[in-house]
Amino acid sequence: HERALMVNRLQKLTRMLRVHPDPKWKQEQQELIKRLK
């Protein structure tokens, strides 16, 4: 369940980064990718 939330968050971040590349979001995205591996 928590994994699904993280995947959701990651997808949302990816969409937001396409619109507005924010370093903070980029960092969070990298963190999520690490944790999901």
Rank of each mutant, 00 (worst) to 15 (best):
H1M: 14
E2R: 06
E2V: 11
E2S: 08
E2N: 09
R3D: 02
R3V: 13
R3I: 14
A4L: 12
A4C: 14
L5W: 15
M6A: 03
M6E: 03
M6V: 06
V7A: 10
V7W: 15
N8I: 15
N8R: 15
N8F: 09
N8C: 02
N8H: 14
N8G: 08
R9S: 01
R9V: 03
R9F: 04
R9H: 04
R9Y: 04
L10Y: 03
L10M: 02
L10G: 00
Q11I: 15
Q11A: 11
Q11K: 15
Q11S: 14
Q11D: 05
Q11G: 06
K12S: 06
L13G: 00
L13K: 00
T14K: 10
T14D: 09
T14A: 10
T14L: 09
R15G: 06
R15T: 10
R15P: 02
M16V: 02
M16T: 15
M16F: 03
M16S: 04
L17Q: 02
L17W: 01
R18I: 04
R18P: 01
R18Y: 06
R18Q: 12
V19N: 13
V19Q: 13
H20T: 09
H20N: 09
H20S: 10
H20F: 09
H20E: 03
H20Q: 07
H20M: 09
D22W: 04
D22S: 08
P23M: 03
P23Q: 03
P23A: 08
P23K: 11
P23C: 01
K24I: 12
W25D: 03
W25I: 15
K26R: 09
K26P: 00
Q27W: 05
Q27L: 08
E28M: 06
E28P: 00
E28D: 01
E28L: 08
E28C: 09
E28A: 05
Q29A: 12
Q29L: 15
Q29Y: 14
Q29N: 02
Q30G: 04
E31S: 08
E31A: 07
E31V: 05
E31L: 08
I33D: 02
I33H: 02
I33L: 06
I33F: 05
K34R: 14
K34P: 00
K34L: 09
K34T: 08
R35G: 04
L36A: 02
L36M: 03
L36D: 00
L36R: 02
L36V: 01
K37F: 14
K37Q: 15
K37R: 11
